[in-house]
Write a protein that binds this DNA or RNA. Structure first.
Lengths: 151, 151
DNA sequence: ATAAAGTCTGTAGCGGCTACAGACTCAACA
DNA sequence: TGTTGAGTCTGTAGCCGCTACAGACTTTAT
């Protein structure tokens, strides 16, 4: 006979994972968590397997994986014996995305920093920040890029 | 008498700014662009003032300002003689947000990089990436943080 | 005159939640 | 045993910043 199954309600799962109750239900709808057992009155009943799985999901989300990617990772974890190559592929692609975002944000940061600095120091008749945003009003599509904003 | 007003349709504005037609209409609804004049048949007619304003909006968005923040910047640009302090405040706050995002993404990047590296080199029986996501399944809220995932 | 391209309004969808309303269930205490 | 109060249920709608239609209309070019 199996050991007595530990079952707990959604609020407990929520507290143990730091994940909102509504979010847990959302993940279930989204297919990231299996349909749990129910109490006589219809309450969801979870076990340690759900706990592990939800923790997995949360960690993957904290790393910036999309719901879609998390689903793929879970499928790999569930159904493959050696999912390493596929998982690495997913993660590597995601890593590229993260690096691209970092680069983009760094560019933003640079332009903002410089503009704020000019704003802080300036006795200019107009606000340098607003001037920068208004500059080259009719300059065409390229004129809207961050790069053109700077300098 | 004023110079002849240059008027063009939304498609022209779209091409000149690189901003989707639907997005332009969305900005209008969102209160970022003033209601334009209309042709007899109901087409929106724009002038160089709209062009400048839309370019402003696009530049601010490219710098990561939210719609709400852009509205505030525009209000400053429109209604104040010396909006520098307020604008600088907005930009400085936003700069903090950008920096926080960069820090968060850098942390993600580090963890992803290390995990992918282990995945690539490993002859481990389990996939290190999936193992990392599954680790400490019942570890409580703190267990879901990125920091704990690493090492 | 007609065809093609452009534009109009209104609505709905995306991701990833979050926030209700209104009905129900469960645990604890008297 | 009854009663409270906290927890949970389903379903729906909202948030941001667009994007993508459908179906009707206008404008432009030939």
């Amino acid at each position: 006979m199996p050991a007595i199954a530990v079952r707990f309600a959604i609020g407990v799962l929520s507290k143990r994972t730091g994940c909102n109750v509504e979010t847990i239900r959302y993940y279930e709808r989204a297919g990231l968590l299996p349909t749990p057992a129910r109490s006589g009155g219809g309450y969801r009943l979870y076990g340690t397997d759900h706990l592990k799985r939800l923790a997995f999901v949360r960690r993957a989300r904290a790393l910036g994986f999309s719901i879609h990617e998390v689903r793929a990772l879970l499928a790999l974890a569930d159904h493959r014996k050696r999912p390493c190559a596929e998982a690495r592929g997913l993660a590597a692609t995601h890593l590229e995305d993260v690096r691209a975002k970092i680069a983009s944000l760094r560019e933003m940061e640079r332009v903002l920093r410089d503009t704020v600095a000019r704003c802080a120091s300036g006795k200019a008749s107009h606000c340098p920040l607003i001037d920068a945003l208004y500059r080259d009003g009719g300059g065409g599509p390229a004129g809207v890029s961050v790069a053109r904003l700077d300098r």
